[in-house]
């Protein structure tokens, strides 16, 4: 079962996404996608680690190509997060920009192994800013991924000020 959780920066989307796996009896994997680049991102990683402490997650770090992962069948996976995963694929060093299909294939593989996959993403689409063409292309790709995942998902939630708004599936 796939669940998509999205929301603005600092909206509480990660805490909500984690809560979707409260009480999960099997293995819980936290799939961390961020390549830490500076002090701020390291602090953010630390904050997320502290938030997960004691909740029974095993952390797996993987920045792209999720189809290469071998995870235990029937586990639950929290993917944090899609904007990073897509950026790691799209802005791959020294080569063609990555394709949405590759990210989707990785997530589809994940869904075929795991019993529950929660994907955390972010809202970057309503600021009305004219970005450079490469950034526009990145945003279009992320939006494409959102639509494709929402179509596949059993539930879609937008977290606003810590409150989950249900767009699809069981009301949070």
């Amino acid at each position: 079962m796939l669940i998509l959780v999205t929301g603005g920066a600092g909206s509480g989307k990660s805490a909500f996404a984690e809560s979707l796996l409260d009480g999960w009896r099997g293995e819980k994997i936290y799939l961390a996608t961020m390549a830490a680049g500076d002090g701020e991102s390291l602090r953010r990683i630390e904050r997320h680690r502290a938030m997960r402490a004691g909740k029974g997650f095993a952390t797996v770090e993987r920045q792209r190509d999720l189809e290469m992962l071998s995870l235990p069948t029937g586990c639950a996976v929290l993917v944090e997060d899609l904007p990073n995963l897509w950026a790691n694929q799209f802005f791959a060093p020294g080569g063609e920009p990555g394709r949405e299909e590759d990210v989707l294939a990785g997530l589809d593989t994940l869904c075929s192994t795991a019993a529950r996959v929660v994907v955390v993403s972010g809202e970057l689409f309503s600021d009305g800013t004219d970005y450079a063409p490469e950034t526009v292309r990145y945003l279009e790709g992320l939006a494409t991924l959102h639509r494709a995942l929402a179509a596949r998902a059993a539930a879609v939630y937008e977290v606003v000020c810590g409150i989950p708004v249900t767009w699809k599936g069981e009301k949070a």
Binding site: F125, S126, D127, G128, T129
Partner: peptide, 22 residues
């Protein structure tokens, strides 16, 4: 209509006015 009002307020006055008008 695309939602354009949920970002940082632009420095450029014309851009600010455009977002507001939309």
């Amino acid at each position: 209509c695309r939602e354009v009002g949920c970002g940082v307020v632009p420095v450029d006055g014309g851009e600010r006015a455009r977002r507001e008008a939309v």
